[in-house]
Design a protein around this nucleic acid. Sequence first.
DNA 1: CCGTCTTTGTGCACGCGTTCACAAAGACAT
DNA 2: ATGTCTTTGTGAACGCGTGCACAAAGACGG
Lengths: 242, 242
Amino acid sequence: MATGRNHRPATRSRGIPEATVARLPLYLRALTALSERSVPTVSSEELAVAAGVNSAKLRKDFSYLGSYGTRGVGYDVEYLVYQISRELGLTQDWPVVIVGIGNLGAALANYGGFASRGFRVAALIDADPEMAGKPVAGIPVQHADQLEKIISDNGVSIGVISTPAGAAQQVCERLIAAGVTSILNFAPTVLSVPDGVDVRKVDLSIELQILAFHEQRKAGEEAEAAAGRKGPDGDMPAVMPA
Amino acid sequence: MATGRNHRPATRSRGIPEATVARLPLYLRALTALSERSVPTVSSEELAVAAGVNSAKLRKDFSYLGSYGTRGVGYDVEYLVYQISRELGLTQDWPVVIVGIGNLGAALANYGGFASRGFRVAALIDADPEMAGKPVAGIPVQHADQLEKIISDNGVSIGVISTPAGAAQQVCERLIAAGVTSILNFAPTVLSVPDGVDVRKVDLSIELQILAFHEQRKAGEEAEAAAGRKGPDGDMPAVMPA
DNA sequence: CCGTCTTTGTGCACGCGTTCACAAAGACAT
DNA sequence: ATGTCTTTGTGAACGCGTGCACAAAGACGG
Ligand SMILES: NC(=O)c1ccc[n+]([C@@H]2O[C@H](COP(=O)([O-])OP(=O)(O)OC[C@H]3O[C@@H](n4cnc5c(N)ncnc54)[C@H](O)[C@@H]3O)[C@@H](O)[C@H]2O)c1
Ligand SMILES: NC(=O)c1ccc[n+]([C@@H]2O[C@H](COP(=O)([O-])OP(=O)(O)OC[C@H]3O[C@@H](n4cnc5c(N)ncnc54)[C@H](O)[C@@H]3O)[C@@H](O)[C@H]2O)c1
C-alpha cells in the first residue's frame, strides 16, 4: 500500500493538451472499473492496456495533472479517480437539455450512462406540438417555445442537438443566445458559433465513410497481392464521368 | 466554365493522410449540397467555409487526390463529388449489420442518412429471443445465433455494435471470426481486435466529459477575471479525499 | 541502514498535421 | 497574341503529439 503522499498539487493546471483531455474520460472509465473491483493500486502499464493506449503516453498525460503516482508501486486507484473527476469537472452537476426528441433524441434520453457521470437531463425539447407533455424516459417533453426559459431557469450550459440537419443551426443559435456555451451536435451539419462556444459533433455517416475508405484500401491491397503486380499504382484509371 | 481538363489521375493514391481521409466526408457533404443547388464550380475558399475548415488545408487535402482544380476558377462540383466518392469507396455498396437492437440500435436502423451513401442495412441482430422476427424500420430482427450465417451470406465487412458494454467484446470477436473487418462501436468499452481490423468508436459520454472540462475551465477563468487575481493558480487546493 | 528491484516522470527526437505565403497556371478581356 | 486578374498547388516553417529510453524515486527485504 502506498504510504508516502506528499504529492504536489498540480502545477500547470492551465496547460493540459487537448489530446490528453480527450483521453482522461477513457482512463476514468478504466479506473472506475478497477475501483468497483476494489483494486487498490494500478501500474501505468496495466492501466494503459485497459484503456488501450501506450503506457508512456498515459504517464505523460498524468504528469500534466501532477505527480500522483508512487514509483515502484503505481497509482492509487481511488485517488486518481478523484483527481481526474475533479479535473474534468465531474464533481459538479451538469444540467443538459436535449433538443429534438425523435428516434435518436429518445434513445439519448433513455441512455443510462448519461446520468452516471454528473450529467443530468434537465429537459427534453421538441418543436412538434403533438409531443408536448408526452413523457420520454420519464421526462415530459416540452415545446420549443419554452427553450429560453428552460435554459435560464435551470442554468443549463450544455445542449445536445438531435434535430434534423435543417433545424440545427437555428436551434444552435437559440441555445447560445439563451446562455448555452457547449454543444454536442448529432445533426450532420457544420454549426457556426461565436468564440467562446465549444461544439463537438458526432456523425455516424462520417465514421462509416472513413471505415469504407479503409475497407476499400484493404480490398485493393489484397487484390494487388493476389495478382502479384509490380507497379505501385493499382487503381483503376480515373475515367471522366459522363 | 472550365474547359481545360487534362487532369492527371491521382498519383500518390496510396498516401492519403488519415487526417485528410477524416475530412473527405465533410467536403463531400458540402459538395453534395452545392450539387443539389446546381452550382457548377466552387472555389477552395467558398468550400472551405461551407465545410468549416481552412482553405489552405482543403487545397492540400485535394492535392493528395490529384489536381482536380482549375486555377482562376475553382473546382468542378460534380467532378469532385465523383472523385471523392470514388476515393472513399462510396461508388460501391456496403452491406452493414447492426448488432444490439435496443434504444440506440433501433434509432440507427431508422436513420435515413444510413442508406444515402451506399450503406445498406443488411440485417438487424439481437440476442433477445423476444425480438426475433419483429420488424424494426421495416427489417425483421434476427436472432444472434444467425450472426455468422448472415455475415457470410451477405458478404458483410462492416459491423455496428450497439449492445451493452458487457457484450461488446464477445460480439466483436464473433463478427471478426465471421469475416467482418471494420467495426463501429457505440458501446463504452475498449475493443481489442487483431491487426487488419479497423475499429472506430462513438462515445457520447466521452464527448460530454470533454465539453464539461472546457465548460469548467471557462467558468474558472471567468471567476478569476472577475476577482482580478494575480496568481495563475486559480484551483481550489487539491485536498485528499476521505 | 543499505542494496535491490520496480515503476514513475520526463528529456529528447521524430513524424504528422497545419498554416502561411507565393509562384505558376490558366481563364478571360481586349 | 498579350496582359491582367483570380485561384490553385505546394514549399517551407512551425507546433503538437507520440514513443523511446533512462535517470531518479522510493518501496521493500534483509
Ligand atoms: N437516428 C440516428 O441513428 C442518427 C444517427 C446519426 C445522426 N442522426 C441525426 O440526428 C438527427 C435526428 O435524427 P432522428 O433519427 O432522431 O430524426 P427524427 O426525425 O426522428 O427526429 C427529429 C426530431 O426533431 C424535432 N424537431 C424538428 N425541428 C425542431 C426544432 N426546430 N426544434 C426542436 N425540435 C425539432 C422533430 O419534431 C423530431 O421529433 C438528424 O439530424 C439525423 O441526421 C441520427
Ligand atoms: N442510448 C444511447 O443514447 C446511447 C448513447 C451512447 C452509447 N450507448 C451505448 O450503446 C449501447 C446500447 O444502448 P441502448 O440504450 O440501445 O441499450 P439497450 O439495453 O436498449 O439495448 C441493448 C440491446 O442489445 C441486445 N443485446 C444484448 N446482448 C447482446 C448480444 N450478445 N448480442 C446481440 N444483442 C445483444 C439486447 O437484447 C438489447 O436489445 C450501450 O452499450 C450503451 O452504453 C447508448
